[in-house]
Design a protein around this nucleic acid. Structure first.
Lengths: 175, 175, 175, 175
DNA sequence: CATGAATGAGCGTTCATTCAT
DNA sequence: GATGAATGAACGCTCATTCAT
């Protein structure tokens, strides 16, 4: 899966199974010992990456702190994961926008983010978007996160600043 | 190109040139009279769609109105274009996230949005993101636009409301 | 199709499409210009061979002669076709016993033999097998034909004799 | 081998060794402890099935009865075996028509039928086919047997009748 | 002897692109 | 310029067979 991650980053989702196998230093056929199909590999990888991201985001959550602080903790973890795992992040992004991941897998992926989504729900419950559909807010949060990550990666010197700017923008949107 | 748009929407970017040719009611070979390669077709299509979007957004811009009003006018046009041209929008989205469009083409695409970007720049010049890199703000605007479009398409009855909610959120972010 | 016939004879139905293409002196890919799938090629070939066989068998049928004479005429033509076209015959036999030919195609093949089957029906209508199911008699006729062909091919000097012996045996069975 | 029989019936000769191993509840690799190659398995299975068939056919042969009666006894046993062991019969048929069984194995298989062949020889020694090559008559007998079996299986209610009809037809051919 | 992961050649099929007509 | 048959490399995937454990 690490090999697949690397190959997806460099060659996109059209990377051949042969390339992935080579990167993993196994034979073409062996890949199919571990994953029934290429789609299966992508699905499992998607879930693994999503899980990695979610678990990183929730790490050390100060359960008793204020909402804003909790949310910033998650946001900060999230951004940090993205910056520390640029390949995972890019592979996950590619998988996410592709048509390769079926709704069932997406749903399973979202479940991993449930805790985060729930926190976001609470944050916006009194804010200006309290009546917008949850998916709407979620999409905006994700895309602001993506944008923030991009700029933290592009300009690592000011990463911390970008992280804060992104969060503040998000907070203005929802809370 | 209209044929390509339709085919991309239904079959993704992996649609074969043969399918596109058929949809366009021309022969396999003729497609390559107009476009040197498949990538070339995609590039030209990307630019055409981007141009269509940009020109729609700028249509009837009230040059003398207040900034916020001008910006909302553009936003509103933009959302309207997306809702009225769902195929163009989806094809453009697919092209945008794929790795098929090289930076040069992307840059050319951005140029078409220059007027809009410029307006956005003016809007944020006194706002909380006045110091953030332009690309950062741009990315956030784009992703909020995408999210807003999605919800307008999904729930057309409240399209106008979603349009406004999206804009207000964006305004909170930048201005 | 001639190439496929030859390759099937020498390598069986597991012959690769690449081999068939090579034998036909076309490229791997071109084969799929003419036949959508390997199975399609086999189906079309089956029908062509069956048609060739049926038309050969019915050639010059003396419509006004006695039943036995008409039937022998067909039988004789049939055997002659098999001996003159050993490859077609063997390919057809292989296709016939394989699971590759679906019932629909088989039915279409049988239709081509309808005239022959009808004549056989009339021959047996007063004979000892008049009450046996038609398929039963058909199967026996076919297998006796196969056996006769084999021996005509193996011992061509006495081909004519074997042809007659086979026919007489069949006549004893049904009439 | 019983597993192989079952798998061949349901999946044809292209069944994978993995499937056969699974059906036999052994590991992939163990199969090759018992059989050097897949072809070897098929050869041994062919012989085993042929032996089963031959021994069933000869069971309880009334050595002192009239020729016709002896022959009918064998025929009857043979048909009964086929009806009682449809899987064995179908697997044997598949192996027989495939190109997988080399002449040497076929010869060994025929040897098991020697006793039956010998009896048939005696039956036809004064009949109309007394001068035909032995193989010719053999082939006809086999194919009539196959046809008879098919109809006994398809229409089990009249199995006994079909058995007799088939035998009478064969007797008319050879004796 | 039993295991099952690993192998890699081979399969049927697709498709962007070419080019003779 | 338009055509569409031809191309052949590349793909995802299978499977008989091997071999370290």
């Amino acid at each position: 899966m690490a090999a697949a991650t690397r190959v997806i980053v460099t060659h996109g989702l059209s990377a051949s199974t042969a390339m992935i196998a080579q990167e993993a230093a196994i034979s073409n056929g062996s890949l199919f010992t571990y994953f029934k199909t290429k789609a299966d590999l992508f699905n499992q990888l998607y879930l693994e990456l999503k899980a990695s991201m979610a678990s990183a985001a929730l790490d050390g959550l100060p359960a008793k702190a204020e909402l804003r602080e909790q949310f910033f903790h998650i946001w900060s973890n999230w951004m940090h994961w993205a910056v520390s795992n640029p390949e995972k992040r890019r592979a996950l992004a590619q998988l996410g926008v592709s048509g390769e991941i079926p709704p069932a897998t997406r749903a399973a992926g979202h479940k991993m983010m449930a805790k985060i989504a729930e926190l976001m729900e609470r944050c916006r419950s009194n804010g200006p978007m309290r009546d917008a559909p949850m998916g709407f807010v979620s999409a905006i949060m994700n895309s602001m996160a993506e944008a923030t990550m991009d700029f933290m990666v592009q300009d690592p010197t000011n990463a911390k600043k970008h992280c804060k700017v992104g969060f503040d923008a998000l907070w203005r949107v929802i809370a």
